[in-house]
Amino acid sequence: MVSYIVRRFLMTIPVLLGVSILAFSLIHMIPGDPARSMLGSKANEEQLMQLREELRLNDPYIAQYGSFLGDLTTGDLGTSVKSKEPVAEELQNRLPATVELSLFAMLLATVIGVLAGVIAAVKQYSWFDNLSMTGALLGVSIPIFWLGLMMIWLFSVKLQWLPASGRLSTGTELETITNFFLLDSILTLNWEAFSDAFVHLLMPGIALGTIPMAIIARMTRSSMLEVMNQDYIRTADAKGLASYLVVFQHALKNAFLPVLTVIGLQFGFLLGGAVLTETIFSWPGVGRYVLQSILGRDYPVVQGTILVIAIMFVFVNLLTDIMYKFIDPRISFD
């Protein structure tokens, strides 16, 4: 097991190097002069020279890449052209917002999706099966921005149950430690802030979790249907085990591998920042930050953020691979 994890871990190194090369090349893929495109046509020659110097654009590519990697090892992701703030610092606030939202959405999607999929499979062709699978079909087809707007209209405007935007209400105080608001409020025993952060998470979490939930439910159902016909399920029944053990232990553990793959991939995508959801709910996360930087041609920010997102994606996949081994002992590395 340990050697499996270590070897799988080592395998991420070439991937990460590739990612760093791609992120680095980004700035050189811009047509024309990067400095000019960042500062716009009104910039004078002196400003351009200064930016080129700052970004080391005058050095040979290899030297540029070398210093780019060197900066990375010290945690320096570059500096925003617009705000002059270090990118790493900006991400320190926004990344937890995105991760918190993604985790919440995935938790919701996994729990509800798996449960619905299992019940739908066990009660195949029942009203629950038909209802939940129609729901899942709707879930993958609904445009998220529309769903988000409808929820805001219903729950915030009409019923006034839930807040429409942000991570905390103005006036709620919270001492931030990790910038994960739920975690911070628990650490500081601030229950008022906890419930406030929680209700702020609800709508964006549901909006973001809808598609993964639908995919997970359908995947769980089809995988369970296949497993429920296996000989070892018949054995489990013949041993006189209670039905819930047969379904949730013997069948679900076997059916979970393809579901886990989907969960890992979807979670990876969510971490990349849910641009639409974050925009609709004014969620101060990475997605909006990247979008603003792209529109504002703030390339060092785009570069640094892409790199961080890609690294997280790689690690989520690493985690998924490690969990495979926990679920199915037959999986070997070679």
Binding site: D231, Y232, T235, Q249, K253, N254, P329
Partner: peptide
Amino acid sequence: VFQDPMTSLNPVF
């Protein structure tokens, strides 16, 4: 006792 011992035992336990 079933026919195929390859498939009659649960592989993940």
